[in-house]
């Protein structure tokens, strides 16, 4: 229990919240990294997934990409990038690693969502004389939206986790509070940092679930999870 009260004291100490190593700055770094990388990952993965799903090709790619994302350790990729020539480009190694791990859930879910659209509905659209683009934007995309957004949610939570690991390899974000705690052998700081990261991850998940609920309801019962 002593550790818990000590961690609470650490968290409520105003001195730990300000300055470049303070919680406020680290939190902003974390959110900024997560947001930017989520945007880049979606910009890369969604067009590819939508087109592949529309024409019905590349299923093996979508599945293998997601399996590979699970098998390759985030930490290993971060360190490999750090030791490569890219390592000298400031925060780019972190950004690249984060995007690499956010792409698979977005791409795989979006592809699965597009392929999961009822073929009869697509055929009906085609029978009404819709062009490929109209089919994609007015039939397939709305019906696939719930599962696509689920993929984005998974990627966002994954990004919060990966951004934490980035601290092990010298990146910014809330993980730095944990690694600094380990270096100082300060268990209260380690636990306080961990609580902050855990709460942030749960908040991101909750915000996505709540924000997406109206969107999902509008489309009707979709598969989630």
């Amino acid at each position: 229990m002593n550790t818990l009260t000590a961690s609470w004291d650490w968290l409520t100490d105003a001195a730990h919240w300000s300055g470049p190593d303070g919680v406020a700055h680290r939190l902003l770094e974390h959110l900024y990294l997560t947001g930017v990388c989520l945007a880049i990952a979606c910009a890369l993965a969604l067009p590819v997934a939508l087109v592949l799903g529309h024409v019905g090709r590349g299923g093996a790619l979508a599945v293998n990409l997601s399996n590979a994302g699970r098998a390759v350790p985030t930490f290993a990729v971060l360190v490999l990038l750090l030791l490569s020539p890219i390592g000298t480009w400031g925060s780019w190694p972190t950004v690249i690693a984060l995007v690499l791990f956010a792409v698979p859930p977005v791409l795989t879910n979006a592809y699965t969502a597009m392929r999961g659209v009822d073929r009869d509905v697509v055929r009906a659209g085609r029978g009404m004389g819709m062009t490929g683009w109209q089919l994609l934007s007015r039939v397939e995309l709305p019906l696939a939206l719930p599962l696509i957004l689920t993929g984005v949610r998974i990627a966002a939570v994954q990004l919060v986790a990966t951004a934490t690991v980035a601290a092990l390899a010298g990146g910014g974000g809330l993980g730095r509070i944990i690694t600094a705690g380990f270096n100082l052998a300060s268990t209260p700081q380690v636990v306080a940092g961990a609580v902050l990261v855990a709460v942030l991850a749960l908040l991101v998940e909750a915000v996505f679930v709540l924000a997406l609920r109206p969107a999902l309801r509008a489309v009707g019962p979709g598969r989630a999870g």
């Binding site: 986790a161 609580v195 855990a198 749960l202």
Partner: peptide
């Protein structure tokens, strides 16, 4: 599900005490 959402570095750190 909540446990799964907690990032790994934080999970290990929370178990430290």
């Amino acid at each position: 599900t909540i446990l799964y959402t907690i990032p790994s570095l934080a999970m290990f750190s929370l178990l430290l005490p």
